[in-house]
Computed example of a mutant assay.
Amino acid sequence: MRVSFKLRWLLGLMLLGLSGCSLGESEYLGGDLWAVNHTSAAINHFSVNGYGGGNANPHGYGGGACCVMLLREWQPGILMRVEWETDSDPYAKSPPLGTDEFRAFMVKHKANYGHHTAIVPLPPYEEEGLCALEVHFLPCHQVKVTTSCWRYPSPNSPITEPLEMKEPPVCPK
């Protein structure tokens, strides 16, 4: 029996799709990765346990990247490594793009970027399960994370710090 090329291609595609299936649930869940920036510095980019999360404006929101992988079942003692880059002068006036002056300006400007790391505990998931991982960047390079289905600034959000926070003159050690 002779099988047409299109039919063989379709059958091959179906077999390929079936080969990706497994009998049982994955140990991990994927969720969106969001940022809430409570500081006046821009978050140029951030990551949580190596999963990238985009950027966040000063006193604003960002991220929205898919996906961060977390254990399906929350367990006590889970720690998240948050790494981020800040720009303390995100609205600096620059020369026109593409010029030698702009390139020189950016070399100097990028020299002032801050690179930070924080290790924070992952709070328990709510009854609804994992909705997303929301990372809050606070003054003094502090970070909080939540998996609540109540996104900030909902009154039900577990993180209640105001969006526009000021850096204290001296950060606690």
Rank of each mutant, 00 (worst) to 15 (best):
L70H: 01
I159P: 12
G54K: 08
H38P: 03
A42I: 02
K144W: 03
N37K: 08
E167C: 01
A104Y: 05
S94M: 10
V107Y: 08
V145L: 05
V68N: 13
V170N: 05
R81M: 11
R103E: 15
L133D: 05
G17I: 07
W9S: 15
W150Y: 12
E101L: 08
V48L: 08
S22W: 12
C171L: 00
E27L: 11
V143L: 06
S40K: 12
V82H: 02
L13F: 15
Y91E: 12
A65L: 11
H136Y: 07
L71V: 10
H59R: 07
D32P: 13
A104K: 14
T39M: 03
C67H: 09
P121V: 03
A65N: 12
S154Q: 09
H141C: 04
R81S: 14
E73F: 10
P158L: 09
W150M: 10
C131E: 13
E27N: 09
S148F: 01
G62P: 07
M14C: 15
H109N: 05
V3F: 10
Y28M: 14
A118N: 02
W34M: 13
S22E: 15
D32Y: 15
P168Q: 06
G30Q: 14
C171A: 00
C140S: 03
P95L: 01
A56V: 07
M80T: 02
P123R: 07
F102N: 13
A111M: 06
H109P: 09
M14D: 12
Y113A: 03
G52E: 12
S19I: 09
T99D: 04
